[in-house]
Amino acid sequence: MKKLLYYLDDEKMLCDLFKEIFESEKMEVSTFTKSDEFLEAIKLRTPDLCFIDFRLPGENGEVVASRLETSIPKYLVTGDIDYTGSDYFIKVFNKPIQIPIIKEEINKYL
């Protein structure tokens, strides 16, 4: 059965690229540009892991993460260079994203 990955980023192009790069026969990728859509989707279907951008319109990525079940593995993606991380996230990935490193992380779920 395919694994499910959610990606939340207000940058539409990045969402598209993320999907294009990481979607495979084993991984289904859904992307969201708005937090409320993302939270709605989670209620309908719990993902195996999710990536959340930090700087979002309205609430930031950390607040969004705090609203999720702790059991859902969460990763933060950010363009900020001074973000120090938080307990909500397994790992923090800096933008510009380095695809092999993220791929390696994702592979752990396959």
């Binding site: 690229l17 790069i21 700087r55 900020d80 260079i81 800096n94 933008k95 510009p96 380095q98």
Partner: peptide, 12 residues
């Protein structure tokens, strides 16, 4: 932050 976002698009 402002540079890294578009840069991600480029590298991606």
């Amino acid at each position: 932050h402002e540079v890294n976002n578009p840069l991600s698009i480029v590298t991606g």
